[in-house]
């Protein structure tokens, strides 16, 4: 779907918008649609736009096919794989990336828990894992270990920090044993 079409327009003529608006970490961005280098092409994924057009490089691209979870961001409260969503479908959406978790130099409790438990090794999958678990804790503040495992089932962590990640998330949820 290359354009937004306003079917309720009184003229009954579709009105094509040449831009979309995207709120990232609370800041609105107006992005032109087109084929110029600084515009959003219809083929651009949200992951690409976040990284290449807006500079939010904390979001990582691993497989670019929705199979590794590295690019996970939160869109309107839900964890999504940003490599599998086209930017032009995101008009009006609100996105939270890893860069938006820290507020005024204050880390999110999840981030602090990941530091305290050294819940990462190479760190490439970490932003995606943190965003998924943030969405989980927002929806379910007291998850079980199994809830966490299910939430993270699509995240590829090759260093095997899984065990320490689970501990960190349990700690952030105040459920550390």
């Amino acid at each position: 779907m290359p354009t937004d079409i306003d079917w309720n327009s009184s003229t009954r003529e579709p009105i094509e918008k040449s831009y979309i608006t995207l709120t990232v970490n609370g800041e609105p961005h107006r992005l032109g649609i087109g084929s110029q280098q600084d515009e959003i092409a219809p083929s651009h994924t949200l992951a690409y736009t976040l990284r290449e057009s807006l500079g939010f490089t904390g979001t990582k691209i691993g497989c670019d096919h929705g199979a590794c979870g590295a690019c996970t961001v939160i869109m309107d409260g839900e964890a999504v794989q940003s490599c599998s969503i086209l930017t032009i479908e995101c008009d009006g959406k609100s996105i939270l990336t890893i860069e938006g978790l820290e507020v005024n130099g204050q880390l999110h409790p999840l981030q602090q828990a990941f530091i305290d438990h050294t819940a990462f090794q190479c760190g490439f999958c970490t932003p995606g894992i943190i965003m998924s678990t943030k969405a989980l804790l927002d929806a379910n503040p007291s998850p079980t270990e199994d809830d966490i495992k299910q939430e993270l089932a699509g995240h590829f962590c090759r260093c095997i920090s899984h065990y320490l990640v689970i501990k960190a998330v349990m700690a952030a949820a105040g459920r550390e044993r």
């Binding site: 939010f56 490089t57 904390g58 979001t59 990582k60 990336t97 890893i98 860069e99 978790l101 820290e102 880390l107 981030q111 990941f114 530091i115 305290d116 050294t118 990462f120 760190g123 490439f124 970490t126 932003p127 943190i130």
Partner: peptide, 16 residues
């Protein structure tokens, strides 16, 4: 002890 690069990694600032 916290890793020296921990903050960069968990805030997305680490430069890959």
């Amino acid at each position: 002890t916290p890793r020296k690069d921990a903050r960069d990694i968990i805030t997305g600032r680490a430069q890959y």
